[in-house]
Write a protein that binds this DNA or RNA. Sequence first.
DNA 1: ATTAGCACTCAATGAAAGAGAGTGCTAACA
DNA 2: TGTTAGCACTCTCTTTCATTGAGTGCTAAT
Lengths: 341, 341
Amino acid sequence: MGLLNERKKNILESIIKDYVETAEPVGSRAVVRRHDLKISAATVRNEMADLEEMGYLEQPHASAGRIPSEMGFRYYVDCMMERESLTDEEIEILQKILMSNIHEWDDFAVKIGEFIAQVTNYVSFIIVPSAKLTEFKYLQIIPLKEGKAVMLLVTDTGLIMHRKFEIPELIKVRDLERISKVFNRVFQDKQLKEIRRSDLQILRDDLKYRKKLIEKVLEVIDSVCEDSGSEKVVISGMLNILNEPEFKDLEKLKRVLTLLKEDALLKNIIPEEIEEDVSIKIGRENKIEDIKEMSLVLAEYRTSGETGKLGVMGPIRMEYWKAAGTVESVRSIIEDIWRIF
Amino acid sequence: MGLLNERKKNILESIIKDYVETAEPVGSRAVVRRHDLKISAATVRNEMADLEEMGYLEQPHASAGRIPSEMGFRYYVDCMMERESLTDEEIEILQKILMSNIHEWDDFAVKIGEFIAQVTNYVSFIIVPSAKLTEFKYLQIIPLKEGKAVMLLVTDTGLIMHRKFEIPELIKVRDLERISKVFNRVFQDKQLKEIRRSDLQILRDDLKYRKKLIEKVLEVIDSVCEDSGSEKVVISGMLNILNEPEFKDLEKLKRVLTLLKEDALLKNIIPEEIEEDVSIKIGRENKIEDIKEMSLVLAEYRTSGETGKLGVMGPIRMEYWKAAGTVESVRSIIEDIWRIF
DNA sequence: ATTAGCACTCAATGAAAGAGAGTGCTAACA
DNA sequence: TGTTAGCACTCTCTTTCATTGAGTGCTAAT
């Protein structure tokens, strides 16, 4: 891995830091000045020519400075980079956010996403896993007026699903209560996804006389489970990419923003598998055509059985050190919160 | 009102239509060609000079065509415009959307907002009113594991609020049931906002032995009401403004998008009062500095007691006829849906 | 191996010229 | 008196061309 000698590494790093900051090609003079090495610009030029031949740098045109290639960034990320964690101030900001009035897990995701977007200045996203595997805890059917009722379904983790539906026949409150009771007795502490498979005979026997209503209730359970069964994607800081000079081109901007707006499309761009603790995808390493000019920094978090993802998206010219450090820190924070929650 | 003679009106309309379509100043030749009147370009030029003097047109520079002034648009909107309702295809699209699996009122708002954005190509927003005034219907406290419980609160309209909270002491399931029962008996069919004011004596007498728990429950009711008590704003089609040539300027774009991103800011731009059935605010008629280059088309909808708003935001060079027609149609559709819902 | 020096390259900048669209005015016409 | 054709004039937009300057690659000296 460490194919490059110390000097080449220094030069590569210097160019990367400069380029990330300014978005301009970096010349040999700039390298010596910034890094004040005791070597001359001419020497740097020679090394830069080498680095270009090796593929780590490239030249927009003959008389410009160099910019790091994707391969150059890759080398830096793999062999040289140190992650830069959250600063104390940032942690303090986060603390405040977490202390505020948040009651739903989803709201946490939103807040944390905003936090990531704020500290990195990139687009953040958090995938909240589906809640398929929790246990059935409680069911209640509550009559409203005008032949309508609402069905509540509570799982042991405190997830609450509900749905309004029409009561198919004239039914007394006592009946609804009775049905609720039976459901509760039969399904108490069962896995939710087992419910439909499990033997419905008991119900049939017990409630034969209200067959239609039971069908309806099962249908509603079905639909409610389906809804909560899909993972959610939370995006924040989409407008941050407006600040990146590479998006002065309106067409490019539109392409990327459109991609981010469509949940369906968005899920595609996030790779299924995350190899390392923090996985970095640079430019064309991404499979989707429209983000071949962007980079992703992602991690996976685990919450009692389910796994979700979080990460940021920015230009290839990205502060990978900050992004990776932030994503890593927040990952563990999410896992902590989940434990308490 | 009808200050302008027929010919001037025709010319004004022609210029508006052309300018809205092309975003370019309109010349005298273009007017005759498009509108094929039997008058010559020179005549039109004279009329245009008049219209400019009257303030209905303006000239970006001496040798360019004319563009309608805000006053010109205002005149057109007030005295000449006919609203253009949804087409049959559009209504069909909407039908499909409304038939799909939607269970929550909020989801409807989102879908309808997307629809408006789609047919107008502007930014749409819908303000969903708070649900303060509904009646308490049902309360249930459901124990989960580890000293936690979830409180459910159902209103007669089927609105369901819930909150997880920690049970302050070791409490048996029976106790929770008992407390729920008492709450239900006492508050059945009361206005939600009366609950805290109403005489809590009954509770105290009945449940003296669980004072701490009751305090907690009241606190949760409080917090849950507060949450649902604020109106929500749903925005769609934000990216549509990327297509408007007036936003080729990145800075302007950023200002407006930022405004739209911040819910808090967004509420400010929507005027409190809506004078007519469909109210149109053109450019500087808007109070907020940042949208002085935009126009709003708004309406109010009524749903059993509460009123919400909906509308679109576009450039001053806007298809007011389409926007107004759409907003008007959708307003009545919303009111219909609400009735069924 | 490193460095100074220098010719060369190429994008970016800005001035100048030309094209094109549209106006305003004048004079003729109905 | 209202309308129209004609024409000079204005102003932007585009193209062209020269200039500038940053930065390189190469060569020769250290």
